[in-house]
Each structure stands twice: as structure tokens, then as C-alpha cells.
């Protein structure tokens, strides 16, 4: 059917929101990144100075490597766990609906409450898990003062919050693999392990790639978990890119610098998503 003016009006609310709230502001961030200014001051064009200053700042590289560590740990542990859970659930579990509901519940928890829950368990000396580990003589996580312990808690928290998403993506893909393929594999004498490597895993790959993409893109923005747990401390040792950006803009009011960090984050995100976006582009526009 022919496209009429009225039809453009119907997509306009969505497109205008995206354009005015995300599109134009992100282009503006690029311009801001080339200037030096703060609230109430006129911007002065400084070329690439902000990028030079950010890229030579050790704090930036620490934030970058923390983000890198967190993102990779979170994404791969989640995907591995999601594959395991999907296979377990596809093999039949009692009270399946209830089990899936319990699995899904962390999706309804906000970052703040998740930090509350995990601090309750992991608070030094008094946390319930800390006490349990102490009572059986195991080392405890000293997250307020130790960088690696803090990063571990951030990773655990983040996995806890996002595993439902990853699991649902992979579990529904597992359910859509026809049972006949498994029966055929079995009659051909395939062991369960062979069935996994030659049937399940290859057929899950499209879903795994989607989960990878979205989890990379979303984990990369991590802010709340870090800010609420450690504020990037002790001494900036658990800073991630988003908290580093926040500190530069809303605490130090170095908006030019903060914009340069923002643009670096934007470009990194698009690079991570490039493969996927290229495929979408091919399918939609050619």
C-alpha cells in the first residue's frame, strides 16, 4: 500500500523522541568535546586537547580497564550459566512455571535494592554470608578496601541482576530446537555430550550472539552498581567509564573533558555493535 503523509505522522512521536533526546544531544556532545567550558561559561574551541588530556590520564585507563574486566567477566559467566540453566530446564524440572518465575525475579529488582541485598550479605564482619564464610574458616570479601574484592562483588551483583535476561534469550532458543533432531542423534549413537557439541551448541549460536551483543552493550554502561557500592573507590581503584564521566561532569564540572569521555564511550559502543548493525543494515536497506 502507498505510504501517505499521515503514516509519517504516526512514526513521528517515536522518531522525534529519539532525534531530540538522543540523536541531536549526542552530536552536540561531540562538539562539546572539542571545547573547554563549564556551566555558565562560554565554550572555547580547543580542538583535540580534551581527548589528549583524557587519553593521557591514568585514571581514564584505570576506568577503562575496570570496565573491560567487569564487562568480560559478566558477559561470559552469564552466557555460560544461561546455557547450563537452559539445558537443565529443557531436560525437565519439577514445577517448571514456578521455577522460571523464581529465576526471573531478579529482573524486577532495581540496582539500589540489589546493592542493599548484597551488602546485607557481604558487609564486613556482620554480613550473613561473611559470617557464614568466617564460621567455616574461609576468607571473606573485603570489598570496601580491596580493589579486586570490590570488582568481584560488582561482577556478582551485575550477573545477579542480568542473568534472567540472558537466560530467557538462550532458553527460548533451546526450546525451539526440534526434539526430533535429538532423537535422530540418539539413534545414530550420539552420547549426551556429543548431542550438546554437535546439536545444541551450534543451534544456539544465533541466540548466543544476540545475548553477547546486548550484554556487551548494556554491561559497558554500568553505573549504578559501582556508584552505589564503592563510589569508584577506594581511591578511584574501582572507577568505571560511566562513573569517571559522571565525576568529570557533575563533580569537577569539566564538561569538555566529560564530553570527550562520552564520545569515546559512544564510539566504543558502536564498534562493539558494528557487526550486528551491518547485518541489520544489509537486511533492511538493500
Amino acid at each position: 500500500m502507498p505510504v501517505r503523509f499521515f503514516h509519517y505522522l504516526m512514526v513521528a512521536p517515536v522518531q522525534l523522541l529519539l532525534l531530540f533526546i538522543i540523536g541531536i544531544p549526542s552530536l552536540f556532545v561531540f562538539w562539546q568535546g572539542l571545547t573547554e567550558f563549564s556551566y555558565g561559561q562560554d565554550a572555547v574551541f580547543v580542538g583535540l586537547d580534551n581527548y589528549k588530556s583524557v587519553l593521557t590520564d591514568r585514571a581514564f585507563w584505570r576506568a577503562f580497564s575496570n570496565t573491560f574486566i567487569i564487562v568480560n567477566a559478566v558477559v561470559y559467566i552469564e552466557i555460560a550459566a544461561a546455557i547450563g540453566i537452559s539445558i537443565l530446564f529443557a531436560g525437565g524440572v519439577p514445577f517448571r512455571r514456578l521455577m522460571i518465575a523464581i529465576l526471573l525475579v531478579p529482573y524486577a529488582v532495581n540496582e539500589v535494592t540489589a546493592v542493599v541485598m548484597w551488602r546485607f550479605m557481604l558487609e564486613p564482619n556482620v554480613g550473613l554470608l561473611t559470617q557464614l564464610l568466617n564460621s567455616v574458616g574461609l576468607p571473606t570479601l573485603n570489598w570496601p578496601t580491596n580493589r579486586w574484592d570490590a570488582l568481584t562483588v560488582i561482577v556478582l551483583l551485575s550477573i545477579w541482576l542480568n542473568l534472567p535476561f540472558t537466560t530467557i534469550i538462550i532458553y527460548t532458543a533451546r526450546l525451539s530446537i526440534p526434539q526430533e533432531i535429538y532423537e535422530a542423534a540418539r539413534t545414530d549413537g550420539a552420547s549426551p555430550l556429543q548431542a550438546f557439541f554437535y546439536v545444541t551448541f551450534p543451534m544456539l549460536i544465533p541466540a548466543i550472539l544476540i545475548a553477547l551483543l546486548f550484554r556487551y552493550v548494556f554491561a559497558f554502561r554500568i553505573f549504578g552498581e559501582v556508584w552505589l557500592l564503592t563510589r569508584g573507590g577506594p581511591a578511584g581503584s574501582t572507577e568505571v567509564l560511566a562513573t569517571y564521566l559522571y565525576r568529570n561532569s557533575f563533580r569537577y564540572l569539566e564538561l569538555g573533558r566529560a564530553s570527550a569521555i562520552g564520545w569515546l564511550m559512544l564510539v566504543t559502543t558502536l564498534l562493539m555493535a558494528m557487526f550486528y548493525l551491518r547485518q541489520v543494515y544489509k537486511r533492511m536497506l538493500s
Binding site: Q32, A242, L277
Partner: peptide, 24 residues
Amino acid sequence: ALAGSAFFMIVIRMLPPIIITLPL
């Protein structure tokens, strides 16, 4: 035009929200 705007919609959803707080 519609295909282009749909592609724009998918690209733009990738951007980290914290970035736009700076100009907004």
C-alpha cells in the same frame, strides 16, 4: 525513508544513556 528511520532507531538504541545527560 521508513527503512532508513527504522535503522536509525536501532542504531540509536545502542548509545549509553549517561552521554546525553551532558547536553541535556
